[in-house]
Simulated scan of single mutants.
Amino acid sequence: MKTITIAHSKGGVSKSTLAWNLAIALRMSGLRVALVDIDGQQVTLEKTSLARTASGYDPFPVIIASSAGELSSIIMKEDYDIVIIDAGGYDYDLGRVAIAIADRIVVPISEESTEVLGFTSFLGTLHTIAEHSPVPAVMIVITRAHARAKSFAGIRSAAALWPSATIAQTVMRRRAVYSASMGHGFGVTELAERHPDAAYEMYRLAREIIYEQY
């Protein structure tokens, strides 16, 4: 089993969007996936799950964990192949636990200056964790990028501050289908016939996150 924690020190950076779509893509690939929300300050995933149930589609419940014990019990179960943890956009004890116990930390970030600056703040949290235990592999996922954007110089400069961090080759482009699909409880991979580019993008990103060597 692998545990993926999606984290950033700032809210609104597409953590929940990535967590939901990644979980759907992996489940559609035949894996047993647990989607865990540890952010008590927002309910995006819970609302998305409820919208899915209301649509009459096959349920995908979100597991809420509010303590380190609850989180550990989920990870220790043999019911899942993958556990995806959506952490809050701030520094808190349970978020640090989720980072420390993960096999990989995934950090979504766009070219917006506030998100790049927020990432440098997040690195401070990683340094603090590293004082007590090894920090898992860090993968940066570029999100909400314009269609023709390619260089991402600001993000690459920030990533270099954590020498072992990698940047996913797959970029989550700015696509309206991401928010639209979540509003109805779907993942973009379930809408492949109408949105093949977004579906391909997410499947490719899922393979990178899960299968690239740690």
Rank of each mutant, 00 (worst) to 15 (best):
A51K: 06
A130H: 13
S66D: 04
G40Y: 02
D58F: 13
R175Y: 04
A160G: 00
K47E: 04
S113K: 15
I109S: 13
E208V: 01
A199V: 00
R207F: 08
V33G: 03
V135I: 14
A165S: 08
S16A: 13
D37W: 06
A98C: 10
S113H: 14
V141M: 02
R32Q: 15
K10G: 04
L31V: 07
T44Y: 08
G56M: 04
V138M: 02
M28L: 15
I6L: 15
K77Y: 03
R173M: 14
G12H: 12
R32A: 15
R174M: 12
Y214Q: 15
V107L: 05
P61M: 04
L71C: 00
T114I: 12
R96Y: 05
R32C: 13
I105K: 08
G12F: 11
V62T: 01
I155E: 00
D197V: 13
A149L: 10
R175M: 06
Y178Q: 07
F186L: 14
S55D: 04
H127A: 12
L45V: 04
M76V: 02
T120P: 00
K2Q: 14
A65K: 00
R156Y: 12
Y80I: 14
T48V: 09
S73Y: 00
D37T: 09
D93M: 07
D37F: 08
T114G: 06
F60A: 03
H184E: 10
Y200C: 07
A137K: 11
H195K: 09
D103S: 13
A158D: 01
G11V: 00
E212H: 14
V97C: 01
Y92K: 08
D91V: 03
Y211R: 14
A51V: 01
A176Q: 09
V107Q: 01
T17M: 10
A160V: 00
R194G: 12
G30K: 11
D197K: 14
S14L: 02
R52K: 05
I209V: 06
T170W: 01
V171H: 03
P134K: 08
I129A: 07
Y178I: 12
A65T: 00
K47G: 11
Q42H: 12
S29P: 06
K10T: 03
Y80D: 11
A168G: 10
R174Y: 14
V106N: 00
G95W: 03
A199R: 00
M1V: 03
R174C: 12
E111P: 04
K77I: 04
T166Q: 11
D91R: 03
D58T: 13
Q169E: 07
R32Y: 15
E111Q: 09
D91Y: 03
R148V: 09
T128M: 13
S110G: 13
S179L: 11
I101F: 05
A168E: 07
A168Q: 09
P163L: 09
T143A: 10
L205E: 10
A147M: 10
R207T: 05
S110L: 06
M202A: 02
E208W: 05
I209M: 03
V116K: 06
L18Q: 02
A102D: 03
S110R: 07
S29Y: 06
I38P: 10
I64V: 12
D79E: 14
I24L: 11
